[in-house]
């Protein structure tokens, strides 16, 4: 049942910055831990630059994992929850996960190291479920999730058209939906204000 889902992930693809070495993110994440920049209990940095199309450089937290991620050969910033997420329903929980991701993206874009070199396209979003029990990669999940997605997107981008694309593809892969906006995307700050 997707109503029981808590292992939710959101990825914002990069608008620029794909050429920045993954190892350049290591000191940034360490500094975030040092300075307590994020609301989660941040634990450590894990580095997988040696693995192609992998989870990249990760900031491991108790509540979930943050990463400059290259899964699917698409670089973006990802956050996925590994614990129960607050919220009465899936749309609320999705908003919590999204808010955490946006907060990290905003910080990253503001880092001096990446000034003018790194930006995220908040109009290109991937949403996925790390839970094959409650959210298998199937049309049924998509049918159940589509109204939730609409409700969530109405909050994130009110009065803006978007296109959601779900393809089962390899059924073993986790359930994943790509969302793209018809109009220009908002900034992380604006989106955070809406959540």
């Amino acid at each position: 049942m997707i109503t029981d889902l808590h292992r939710i992930g959101i990825k914002f693809l990069t608008a620029r910055g794909d050429d920045i070495p993954l190892t350049d993110f290591i000191p940034i994440f360490h500094a975030w831990i040092q300075e307590g920049k994020l609301e989660d209990v941040m634990i450590d940095v894990a580095e997988y630059s040696h693995v192609p199309a992998g989870p990249g450089t990760m900031l491991i937290a108790h509540e979930g994992n943050y990463a400059i991620d290259e899964t699917g050969n698409r670089r973006g910033f990802v956050y996925y929850s590994k614990q129960e997420v607050s919220g009465d329903n899936l749309a609320d929980r999705l908003a919590v996960v999204c808010r955490k991701n946006l907060a990290a993206c905003k910080l990253l874009e503001a880092e001096d190291t990446f000034k003018d070199r790194l930006a995220f396209d908040f109009g290109r979003i991937e949403i996925f479920f790390n839970d094959r029990l409650n959210g298998p990669n199937s049309d049924e999940t998509w049918q159940a999730f589509e109204p939730v997605l609409k409700s969530f997107m109405a909050r994130l981008y009110p009065n803006t058209d978007f296109e959601a694309r779900y393809e089962t593809g390899d059924p073993r892969e986790r359930f994943s939906v790509s969302v793209s906006l018809q109009d220009d995307a908002a900034s992380a700050e604006d989106l955070l204000a809406r959540l």
């Binding site: 997988y48 790390n130 839970d131």
Partner: peptide, 24 residues
């Protein structure tokens, strides 16, 4: 692969004693 993705960090690590380790 599923377990690494859902409970760990999407990495399967092969050890020097033919185990697989999942972290975090």
């Amino acid at each position: 692969a599923d377990l690494a993705e859902e409970y760990s960090d999407a990495i399967c690590h092969v050890t020097t004693r033919q185990d697989i380790q999942l972290h975090y």
